[in-house]
Design a protein around this nucleic acid. Structure first.
Length: 295
DNA sequence: ATCCAGGCCCGAT
DNA sequence: ATCGGGCATGGA
């Protein structure tokens, strides 16, 4: 049972008694590309035409440039603060001792509930790119096609274009955003969304396999991107994306350092981590990437 | 300079 | 079914 206290004071929204949460770990672990670090444990975050300026001190979150309504109605769920991560972590460690170090080191990671459209577009952009480049492209697209939401010092924040705004972007437009060969993929994704073949509501009652199949009907969306979208925006917390990093990390930790196909790694995760696969993946990914595991 | 990045498509076996 | 080359762009 999770009990957090939310109230308004001096033009701030304060969230108290938050456990298993670290704003830096949650933002920097690689699941999200639309935020800026302001200072230690202080971030500006954009999602769904909303902006929040948030600072953490121990188990208290100070929310600025937002409202009580948005914190209660949107950000609590965005940061996944209503979920009992102590139980999740205890379960994972009890099923696999090897997860203990990653989980204890990255104790404050939470899987965000991100907006579907932006997440899909962002992870299409992510292929064959490094995280800073991905952030830069998302920033550029938002600045050109989104809406100004606010600023902190010199840093301006813009919304990622909604479906309506996406409709106006051509393949040339995406290329101007330096998306390279992904421009055609992005166009196909936005067409699928504006024409209604792929939209958020369609996933409400879809099995994991059907959801993945639907996402992969978009050109430029393979298994890895589909799994990321499912995990980070559609609530499929069992989804275990296997990228080059997770492949290396899993080979080192679970396959005796031997070259192993992504498919085999995915099957291993499904069998051993089950419903908690997504959490395991994120602890392993963040921990392993920072420690350069397998390289 | 060469290599590679939170991959995927496509054509050749 | 599986494998490898190619792909835009930018940083190490």
């Amino acid at each position: 049972m999770i009990i957090i206290k939310i109230y308004e004071k001096d033009n701030l929204v304060i969230i108290e008694a938050v456990n298993d949460f670290n704003i830096e770990q949650t933002m920097e672990c690689g699941q999200c590309f639309h935020f800026e670090k302001i200072a230690d444990l202080e971030y500006g975050v954009v999602s769904m035409n909303k902006f929040i300026h948030i600072r953490q001190e121990k188990d208290t979150l100070y929310c600025m440039q937002t409202s009580l309504m948005d914190v209660e109605g949107y950000w609590i769920r965005y940061f996944d603060l209503e979920r009992d991560y102590s139980a999740i972590k205890a379960h994972l460690i009890s099923t696999d001792e090897r997860l203990k170090a990653p989980i204890e080191d990255k104790y404050g990671v939470r899987i965000l509930n991100q907006e579907f459209e932006e997440t899909l577009m962002s992870f299409i952009i992510s292929q064959n790119k490094q995280i800073p480049h991905i952030k830069q492209i998302v920033r550029n697209i938002s600045k050109k096609y989104g809406i100004f939401l606010g600023s902190v010092g010199e840093i301006d924040f813009y919304s990622f274009p909604d479906i309506c705004a996406l409709e106006s972007i051509t393949e040339e437009g995406y290329k101007e955003m330096k998306t390279g060969f992904r421009a055609g993929y992005l166009l196909d994704a936005s067409k699928n969304m504006t024409l209604g073949m792929v939209k958020r509501e369609k996933f409400d009652n879809l099995s994991e396999d059907d959801a993945r199949k639907l996402l992969m009907s978009i050109k430029g969306v393979g298994e890895k991107v589909a799994n990321c979208v499912m995990l980070f925006s559609l609530g499929y917390r069992n989804s275990f994306p296997v990228d080059v990093w997770i492949k290396r990390i899993m080979e080192e930790m679970y396959f005796d350092g031997k070259d192993t196909k992504k498919e085999i790694i995915g099957e291993y995760a499904k069998k051993n981590f089950g419903e908690y696969g997504g959490y395991a993946q994120q602890y392993l990914f963040y921990y392993g990437r920072e420690k350069n595991l397998g390289k």
